[in-house]
């Protein structure tokens, strides 16, 4: 390793940036262990009772289940739709593939509030509001662009001769895809899945438009909870979510790191 002296100014700036990024955690983590009935910083007493409270709150656990289920379904559909789309764009290169690629990523450029309103107007007459299917469809609008993008990149960087080698060895196109192409895309598939899962699990704005009194996602339930009560339970929940996100990111890092060792 090349040890170059780092200027104290740069060190200072980096420290400030990190403090800024981590500031919410510095506040949220202590509050999550608060023994008080109200959110206050710093807490006057310590306890883990608010962690326990999460699991006794029927609304929260129901919303958590919905969010997890939703994220899984959305991730699976994103992969199932995104993979053939990416394959068509990158490999079959239809006329206007680049324009199509841009079109598919367009939803990312729209403010979610605009998307939310548009979805509300379209879904309401279809009776999709407040339904699980409606939520899935709404989330797919934001996860699919990510899926197509990341999977296209993963496909475009694969060495074609490896697939050609498989073909000359007697593998039919579908066999080549499942035995060679797909395994080589492993890290791309894992990152896509993680990304879609987190985007769906985190989504607030679209979900706010789509949820109703009987069906709510975790972020929406938390939002409503904070509106009505100021107890530290939401802080405990937030810490759990940070841990969950960290686990997903670690999985991606492990896989990407592992991939490097044999893809090179």
């Amino acid at each position: 390793m090349d040890e170059r002296p780092i200027s104290p100014v740069l060190k200072g700036v980096t420290l400030v940036m990190f403090l800024f990024l981590l500031a919410p955690l510095i506040v949220v983590v202590p509050i999550s262990f608060s023994g008080d009935a109200y959110m206050a910083f710093p807490p006057t007493s310590w306890s883990v009772k608010w962690y326990g409270a999460i699991f006794h709150d029927a609304q929260m656990t129901a919303a958590f289940t919905i969010s997890i289920l939703l994220a899984i379904v959305v991730t699976v559909i994103s992969l199932l739709v995104g993979l053939p789309a990416a394959y068509a764009l990158v490999r079959l290169k239809p006329r206007g593939a680049e324009a199509l690629g841009s079109l598919f990523t367009a939803p990312l450029l729209l403010p979610t509030i605009v998307l939310g309103l548009a979805i509300l107007l379209v879904f309401a007459p279809l009776g999709l509001l407040g339904t699980f299917q409606g939520l899935v469809a709404a989330h797919l609008i934001v996860t699919l662009p990510y899926a197509v993008r990341v999977l296209s990149t993963a496909l475009a960087t694969l060495p074609i001769p490896v697939e050609e080698a498989a073909a000359t060895l007697g593998a039919r196109p579908l066999t080549v895809f499942f035995k060679v192409t797909l395994p080589m895309m492993r890290s791309g598939l894992v990152s896509t899945a993680a990304l879609c899962f987190l985007v769906s699990f985190d989504e607030v704005v679209l979900s706010l438009f789509m949820t109703g009194p009987r069906l709510s996602t975790l972020p929406v339930a938390m939002y409503h909870h904070v509106e009505q009560q100021a107890d530290p339970m939401v802080a405990s929940l937030s810490v759990l979510l940070v841990v969950l996100t960290l686990v997903v990111v670690l999985i991606v890092d492990r896989t990407a790191g592992l991939a490097k060792t044999f893809v090179k």
Partner: peptide, 18 residues
């Protein structure tokens, strides 16, 4: 190609990395 019964060796080796 999959019915031609030819062995092809590439410049880039093209081994299956997985």
């Amino acid at each position: 190609p999959y019915q031609r019964d030819m062995g092809l060796v590439f410049q880039s080796y093209a081994l299956f990395p997985h």
